[in-house]
Design a protein around this nucleic acid. Structure first.
Length: 1135
DNA sequence: CTTTTGCGATTTTTT
DNA sequence: ATCGCAAAAG
């Protein structure tokens, strides 16, 4: 149990005792006051800003036995400040005389992992203040009390708030903590039994003077050695404020802080413990003016960064990174390159110089390939320069800046560097194998000669090479960066049984990373089971095999919570989690928050305020209290499609919805009541908190659930509400802005942070599912490691979209590509090594040997390198239903024939589910509008006009005129870069005209291919009779990306054309790529596609609409927020 | 026996 | 999007 939970438990107990003494919690200030007075401490209110308050809002003055606080408007606020200070007293945290400044009564139990909170998460002072806020809230409104009021007495959050005179949001947050998060069990309190240090550990801990690098393999007692060193430094009389302990993750920092606090709470709070990034942020905040910022520059995440650049993108006029359709993805690629540059402390100017140097070399050696690479780098440099300017102008900083800015500062300002290095007499670094050049340079600035620098790491666990971490830094520590340095190697493994230790040591001996002579000696005794590899025939059986062995391990005494499943990537984890859950294995896994049904169900309420067709009813209709039939939902959407309705106006029209059942209308009125008083400008958090706690039973249902998977659902809701609290401000209405931001987060894969389970979930008895990266630093009695196929580990190297300029990555030599490939393959070995070494007692790897199609699927070559340490066995698990079969089938009755366009059938192929929403339910809500899509719309419109007016040429001025007209109609003229956008459009139209230079135009006819009574229509955009008499039909494809795999839409077009006129051709014109592609298919291929068309139509009749999820396409789908299960009932449909 | 084509599985990882 | 394998075609 962590310190925060401990504090809350104590607070709740105090509350209970006070109530027993007869105090009334409904008078909160008096309640807190009596508790304080009973400790012989005085309580005083004073006016805000009084000198005694020392700049804070409340303060405990120990010497005077006095708590003072500023006088607030409400009794509850006063009580909260008093209780906050009471926390400092009760928790024995009164050694630090600083006042309390950032008091927040509605603070969630754990910060949301977004933007700045990710960095400062465990800043020591923040952490104490968070603890006190939660203590105070718990003292005034204990979770068990509010939980009982809500669940047993049936009181809403507002009613509870009234009773206590507390604000709604404070009660709501407390209720969320109480009913959505699992109750943390009082632990059996078994603090890690510290064994005495072995000789090597003791030597490492007591070392003084010259820099020391401790090579600590897995399970060698690294943390214990490090904490021992800290305690020995303290014992030597070192002031804890002189000790700096740097880590790479907040998790590690918190663990170190807690471990040190076990023996010395005061020292732990006084030391600087945190990540490199948090330390960097501290420096930036201290020296903001030297860095050219105003006070407290704001941190932005990548989503915000992309948004900033997107606005200015048209003006960059990039040639090599030109994706005029979806600039966001290009910007993302470039920002990744920028981030890498910052890892190497390469500023925009230096980036451009490197690119220019490449250009010179390319011209000198006549190397065309090099020249193109150089130009690409140059374009990145241009965007990089602009990005830094925008950021500075807006007083923002990004993740990369957190380390690179302080490095530049300290390296250029020796006085500041001196001040800092004099502050810290002892610097300790954890996970040294994860340092990149920027962190090394930061270290060198803090301790130039390396005196009393102490680092610990393991080159074989270096799995962050993609962000510039290199185990080469381990070698350089002694040779180059900190000469005079010594090394110590810890050789005893205390974690794993010999079977496992020997296995990963054997693999370790063959690894490129590390020295080769670093095998470990197992201290534990043999367990009798070797590391196992369980192979199965098919992928589906792998899940069954894992489920079987989880249960078997359970019979051997390893509970679910003792077992972990590790995968290399997130995608596979999510699939596995779903399947195991269906097999009845409880799993601890959230997955992508916004893809969970509970969350989509909530977002549906929000979308009902913004979407005029109310497609959110699809999700709302699936929920217990608001059940609707699919038929009714579909009818409502149909009504709203033809109606001119503003978003949120539909509740007024319920009576006029003909064809909707009476019971359906009744539910719709209830939904309207649930939404009453909210609109697009409402705060999403307030609205959903009201819905969850005041107007529905949704939250209560989670509290009453018992299964791990339902509890996980509750945690997801908690996490989502937590996320809603911290939205960046910006233009537009809050609700639509939030929906856009969610889509952007997923597109940029920034939703990953939200899929981390809060600490409060750790008590649940479920199998832990995580990536190998996520498992670093952890250990589990049993580890399952699936997917050990050649294609997944090692993964093939893929070069970044924007490779760094030659010479940017220090120590990569002349061939930067070869160096990157080598680094990648080293990293893959490290991933395997880390995974193996997480296991204490049992380790089982899994792999299917055949693909779904039945062909062989080779095993990972890494397995052979375990030699005789690996026990192989092949199993054939009993078939069970993984529930993948019928998913997506919807009862539907199609009357009459089906008639679709090529575009529609193409959509069915890409994602049948999306087809269902778009063309069966017809939810509408076309794709998102952006300046780029509007520009493309204008171009398309003009091209259509050109065909209709049979124009062959059009003067530049006429094109401009038409574009201008279209831009006016769409409002694009007002865009800041309307000229640049018009320039792009001009190019596209001009290219379209060149495609019309040959042959004589014909009126494009409407074509169709007959498919057993049904049809697929092909309406060409353009048509010609060529000089040789051939007829050509053209379709303009705006997307422009050439898909190498011909889709069935193309086949349908071809078939339709041939049916119309034998020997006619079909061509796709890609405007952005300036290319005409002939649609060609061999007889066999065309035959196969023809069969696929038949299959597709049959699937539509059968109601088979499975989703094809993809993080790339889903966020852009209009049905994104409603996709999932559908309401009950059969759908009547005419196409 | 060689070449083409289809198809399935994979497109990480994080402060 | 890209790779590697297996089956079909030449």
């Amino acid at each position: 149990m962590d310190s925060i939970e401990k504090a809350r438990t104590i607070a709740a107990e105090l509350h209970a005792v006070a109530v027993q003494k007869g105090l009334d919690p409904r008078k909160p200030y008096n309640f807190a006051k009596c508790e304080i007075l009973s400790r012989d401490i005085c309580l005083e209110a004073t006016k805000p800003g009084a000198t005694q308050l020392d700049g804070g809002r409340a303060k405990y003055i120990r010497n005077d036995l006095l708590i003072i606080h500023e006088r607030c408007d409400t009794d509850f606020e006063n009580a909260f400040l008093a209780a906050h200070e009471l926390g400092h007293v009760v928790l024995g945290d009164d050694f630090n005389p600083s006042p309390s400044t950032n008091v927040d009564p509605a603070r969630p139990a754990e910060p949301s992992p977004v933007a700045e909170d990710r960095v400062v998460d465990y800043g020591k002072r923040q952490r104490r203040e968070i603890q006190m806020d939660l203590f105070a809230r718990e003292f005034l409104l204990p979770r068990p009390v509010v939980k009982r009021m809500h669940l047993v007495d049936g009181m809403s959050a507002s009613e509870i708030a009234k009773v206590f005179g507390a604000p709604f949001d404070v009660v709501a947050q407390q209720l969320f903590d109480a009913i959505l998060l699992p109750v943390v069990e009082t632990p059996s309190e078994s603090p890690a039994v510290d064994r005495p240090l072995n000789d090597k550990q003791a030597a490492a801990a007591s070392h003084r003077g010259v820099p020391l690098l401790v090579e600590a393999g897995p399970g060698t007692g690294k943390t214990q050695t490090l904490t021992s060193r800290v305690h020995s430094l303290l014992a030597d009389g070192i002031d804890p404020r002189e000790i700096l302990l740097l880590t790479f993750s907040n998790k590690a920092a918190a663990e170190m802080a807690d471990r040190i606090a076990e023996k010395n709470k005061e020292a732990s709070a006084a030391m600087w413990i945190g990540t490199f990034h948090a330390f960097g942020l501290d420096l930036i905040r201290r020296f903001y003016s030297e860095l050219g910022f105003e006070k407290d520059p704001r941190m932005i995440d990548k989503t915000e960064a992309v948004e900033m650049l997107e606005q200015q993108f048209p003006k960059f006029d990039l040639e090599h990174y030109r994706n005029v359709y979806a600039p966001a993805s290009v910007i993302d690629d470039i920002l990744k390159a920028v981030s890498r540059a910052k890892d190497e402390v390469v500023c925009p100017t230096r980036y451009r110089e490197l690119a220019e140097a490449m250009q010179l070399r390319a011209t000198a050696s006549n190397d065309d390939e090099l020249l193109i690479r150089a130009r690409r780098c140059h374009e990145v440099a241009r965007v990089y320069e602009a990005y830094e300017k925008i950021k500075k102008a807006k007083h923002c900083i990004d993740f990369g800046d957190l380390v690179s800015l302080p490095v530049s500062l300290l390296e250029s300002e020796p006085t500041i560097a001196n001040t800092i290095s004099e502050t810290y007499s002892h610097v300790l670094v954890d996970e040294y194998q994860d340092v990149n050049r920027s962190s090394v340079r930061l270290l060198k600035s803090i301790c130039p000669d390396g005196a009393n620098l102490w680092a610990v790491g393991d080159a074989k666990q270096s799995i962050y090479r993609f962000r510039g971490a290199s185990s080469g830094n381990m070698k350089r520590f002694t040779n180059e960066d900190f000469r005079r340095a010594q090394t110590v190697r810890l050789e005893q493994n205390y974690r794993s049984v010999p079977e496992i230790t020997d296995a990963f040591s054997a693999f370790g001996a063959t690894m490129a990373a590390g020295t080769g002579g670093d095998a470990l000696t197992a201290e534990r005794s043999v367990c009798g089971s070797k590391v196992a590899l369980t192979t199965v025939d098919k992928v589906t059986e792998q899940t069954l095999a894992i489920a079987d062995s989880i249960e078997q391990m359970r019979q051997n005494g390893h509970g679910y919570r003792d077992q972990a499943i590790l995968c290399t990537g997130n995608e596979k984890l999510a699939t596995l989690a779903g399947e195991l859950e269906r097999l009845g294995i409880p799993v601890l896994f959230l997955g992508s928050l916004f893809e969970r049904l509970e969350i989509k169900n909530l977002i549906a309420f929000l979308s009902l305020l913004t979407d005029r067709r109310a497609m959110g009813l699809i999700r709302v209709g699936c929920q217990r209290q608001t059940e609707l039939t699919l038929g009714d939902v579909s009818k409502v959407i149909e009504h709203l499609r033809d109606d001119i309705t503003e978003p949120g106006e539909w509740p007024a029209k319920v009576d006029s919805f003909h064809g909707v059942s009476e019971s359906g209308k009744q539910v719709l009125r209830e939904v309207a009541t649930i939404l009453l008083g909210f609109d697009q400008s409402s705060s999403p958090w307030t609205m959903l908190a009201t819905i969850l706690l005041d107007r529905t039973q949704i939250a209560a249902d989670f509290a009453n659930a018992s299964s791990v998977s339902e509890r996980t659902g509750g945690i997801a809701v908690w996490q989502f509400m937590n996320f809603l609290r911290v939205q960046p401000s910006g233009k537009g209405l809050p609700v639509p802005r939030l929906l856009k931001r969610i889509r952007d987060l997923i597109r940029l894969k920034e939703d990953r942070d939200l899929s981390k389970l809060p600490d409060a979930a750790s008590g649940l008895d479920g199998v832990r599912l995580m990536t190998v990266h996520g498992s670093k630093g952890l250990e589990f009695p049993v580890v399952h490691f699936p997917g050990m196929n050649k294609t997944s580990l090692p993964l093939n190297y893929k070069s970044p979209k924007c490779p760094p300029p030659d010479g940017m990555v220090e120590g990569s030599g002349d061939d930067s590509k070869a160096a990157a490939v080598a680094a990648h393959s080293e990293e893959q070995e490290c991933i395997f090594y880390v995974a193996l070494s997480r296991a204490r007692d049992r380790l089982i790897a899994y792999a299917p040997t055949k693909q779904a199609g039945g062909k062989n699927w080779p095993l990972s070559p890494f397995l052979d390198r375990l030699g005789s340490n690996l026990q192989r066995n092949h199993v054939a698990p009993n078939e069970r239903d993984l529930g993948n079969g019928n998913e997506g089938t919807i009862p539907i009755q199609v009357s009459g024939r089906i008639s679709l366009t090529t575009a529609q059938i193409g959509l069915f192929e890409r994602c049948p589910r999306r087809f269902f929403y778009t063309h069966v339910v017809r939810i509408g809500g076309r794709r998102e509008e952006s300046p780029y899509t509007l520009m493309h719309d204008a171009v398309r419109e003009i091209c259509e006009a050109i065909v209709a007016e049979r124009l062959i040429t059009l003067s530049d001025s006429k094109i401009r005129q038409r574009l201008n007209q279209a831009f006016k109609a769409s409002g694009l003229v007002d865009h800041g870069y309307a000229n640049e956008l018009a320039g792009m459009g001009h190019k596209l139209v001009k290219y379209f005209l060149t495609t019309r230079a040959e042959g004589s135009p014909i009126e494009p006819p409407s074509l169709a291919v007959n498919l057993a009574g049904d049809e697929v229509k092909f309406r060409p955009d353009d048509g010609f009779t060529m000089e040789d008499g051939a007829i050509v039909f053209r379709q303009v494809r705006t997307g422009g990306i050439k898909s190498s795999r011909d889709d069935i839409a193309a086949a349908a077009a071809l078939l339709a054309a041939t049916e119309h006129a034998r020997g006619s051709r079909v061509e796709f014109v890609h405007l952005s790529d300036q290319e005409i592609r002939d649609v060609e298919m061999q007889k066999r291929k065309l035959g196969n596609r023809h069969a696929s068309l038949h299959d597709a139509l049959k699937s539509i009749r059968d109601g088979k609409f499975p989703a094809k999820p993809s993080s790339r396409t889903c966020p852009g789908c209009p049905a994104f927020f409603v996709c999932g299960s559908v309401p009950e009932g059969t759908l009547q449909k005419t196409f």
